[in-house]
Structure formats: structure tokens, C-alpha cells
């Protein structure tokens, strides 16, 4: 699936990265808990979140997440968009709730991120 497909499916506005609609994404993760995102997500993923703060971008940068979708009609402020632009990320905004957005993408064939095996003794 391309980021352009994600945009169409979620009826989303493009806040950043209009020129990156052809980029491929392999998996998705929907969460407001960045702790869980850090534990679950793999590369070429879309992050769907209702959380608005710069740590969403910083967490995504660490994981090489190329596309963030802000759900529930929430819009990020200029600082968040500046940080995302610096990292070359695509940022979308949809009026759908996180649950609905995840459901739509899953139905269209985008699977969830699988977790790495737990370490011994943890």
C-alpha cells in the first residue's frame, strides 16, 4: 500500500509530504501510548495516533516511521510539523477515530506490526 492509498482510504488531509504519496508502507500501528509504539513497530510503518506532542515525531524518527496520521480531527501545532519536516516524514490528518482508521486500513490489507520476541528473563 502507498501513503497515497492511506490518504484516500482515511479521507485524510496532507499536512506534510505531498510529494511522497508514492512511498510504500508495509504495516501500521494505532496507539496513543508511545511506550507501546517503541516496543511494537517495525520499519515502513504508518502510525495512527490521537496524541499530539513532539514525542510522537521523536518516537517515529527512532523507528523510521515514514508516515504519521493524526486521528479524530486533531491538528498538530507548528513545532510538531517543523520537527516532522526536518525528519522527512509525511503527516496526514483524518476526522476518523483511531479505531475506525485502523479498521479501514486493516480491511484494505494493511497488517499490524508484529512484536519482536521477548528477551530471556524479562
Amino acid at each position: 500500500m502507498t501513503i497515497g492509498d492511506v490518504k484516500e482510504i482515511l479521507e485524510a488531509d496532507v499536512l506534510l509530504g505531498e510529494d511522497r504519496m508514492d512511498e510504500e508502507v508495509d504495516t501500521a500501528c494505532g496507539s496513543d501510548l508511545m511506550s507501546d509504539v517503541l516496543a511494537f513497530v517495525k520499519e515502513k510503518a504508518v502510525l495512527i495516533t490521537g496524541l499530539i506532542n513532539p514525542h510522537v515525531v521523536r518516537t517515529s524518527e527512532m523507528l523510521d516511521i515514514s508516515c504519521i496520521v493524526f486521528s479524530r480531527g486533531k491538528l498538530p501545532g507548528p513545532q510538531i510539523l517543523e520537527e516532522a519536516e526536518e525528519c522527512g516524514m509525511t503527516v496526514l490528518a483524518t476526522n476518523m477515530t483511531t479505531y475506525t482508521a485502523c479498521g479501514e486500513l486493516y480491511t484494505h490489507g494493511l497488517p499490524g506490526s508484529k512484536r519482536r520476541a521477548a528477551p530471556e528473563g524479562a
Binding site: D32, L33, S35, D36, T59, A118
Partner: peptide, 13 residues
């Protein structure tokens, strides 16, 4: 969005 008790195990992982 932090403080879920995932940090140390995730470092080890």
C-alpha cells in the same frame, strides 16, 4: 505517552 512500564524490557529486547 510514556510510563507504561515497557522501557527497561524494551532496551533489553
Amino acid at each position: 505517552g510514556f510510563g507504561a512500564g515497557m522501557g527497561l524490557p524494551n532496551m533489553k529486547r
